[in-house]
Design a binder for these strands. Structure first.
Ligand SMILES: [Mn+2]
Ligand SMILES: [Mn+2]
Ligand SMILES: [Zn+2]
Ligand SMILES: [Zn+2]
Lengths: 148, 148
DNA sequence: TATTAAATAAGAATAATTATCATTTAGGAA
DNA sequence: TTCCTAAATGATAATTATTCTTATTTAATA
């Protein structure tokens, strides 16, 4: 089921949550996923492993993971939330046609922005994270987006 | 009612929409607003001018404005949309405590990011806009956030 | 002023998410 | 190991945000 079951169980336990079958499968799925899936997508795929799983459990587990800092929640203008197990600082390319969210990892860009903002003084505010969203359209919706 | 009624009517007409009382009041309200209000907030405030207004009209008008490019829609992790009449490139500071969205206008930052990305080649993608979201918490929720 | 295509009000319908509660289970204690 | 219990789950009801439908009204043009 999972490449590294013990590691996954440990990560869930380490944030103070019971390592249930449902949580393990959901977290494993998100770790492998690169598409920032919706609840419905996660639900459908988790059902392949656990046919009896309830959609309420998917919502509950995802929210618990977000609260624990294991995953991120990404809001979209379509009104559906998307989930991301990549908690390292990174940015997103969003196709307004296909609704694809593509990770854009660029340490140079992260540093450039962090550096710039550290020079500015934002009074009465404590920054927790910085996200750049690059909106636009895939030229060929069937093809993939790549950088450089 | 409005500082510059004719200007507002012209802007609405110019994007091919009838300048109805409802649209004028909503657009005027958004232009003056600095809080990136929710539909509920807009509805409550517009009701002061037009007591008979329907919430469906608020949704319809806002969506029409977004489609026409008159305003922007901002998704939040709380699951409610927020609306912004500032269509010039600018970034947002988001307080995860108070849900305040504060405009962060900094041409230097806009240029820095645009410049950096123009050097990178993002294959198979046409960028339409770039948004930086600075997430964090107000230190004093009653006080305002200011830059520099 | 009359015409009419477009817009609105009211409320029903849908979609996404959250709450409730009886049942099950993970994980520690015995 | 087996037992115990707090925590988690499954089923489904409830809520919230948003969209749809249709009869009525209105802005814009002639
Ligand atoms: Mn604004
Ligand atoms: Mn919703
Ligand atoms: Zn991501
Ligand atoms: Zn703004």
């Amino acid at each position: 089921m999972s490449i590294n079951l013990d590691q996954i169980k440990a990560e869930i336990s380490d944030v103070g949550l019971k390592a249930t079958h449902q949580r393990i499968v959901i977290y494993d799925y998100l770790m492998k996923s690169k598409t920032h899936p919706t609840v419905d997508r996660i639900y459908d795929d988790v059902k392949n492993h656990i046919p009896s799983v309830s959609v309420a459990t998917i919502y509950r587990v995802l929210e618990d993971f977000v609260t624990a800092g294991l995953i991120y929640k990404v809001a979209t203008r379509e009104g559906t939330m998307r989930y991301d197990a990549n908690t390292a600082p990174h940015n997103h390319i969003y196709c307004t046609n296909t609704q694809d969210i593509i990770d854009y990892n660029d340490q140079e860009l992260n540093d450039l922005i962090a550096n710039f903002l550290s020079k500015k003084k934002i009074k009465n505010f404590k920054i927790s994270d910085i996200k750049l969203q690059i909106n636009g359209e895939k030229l060929d919706p069937d093809d993939s987006v790549s950088i450089n």
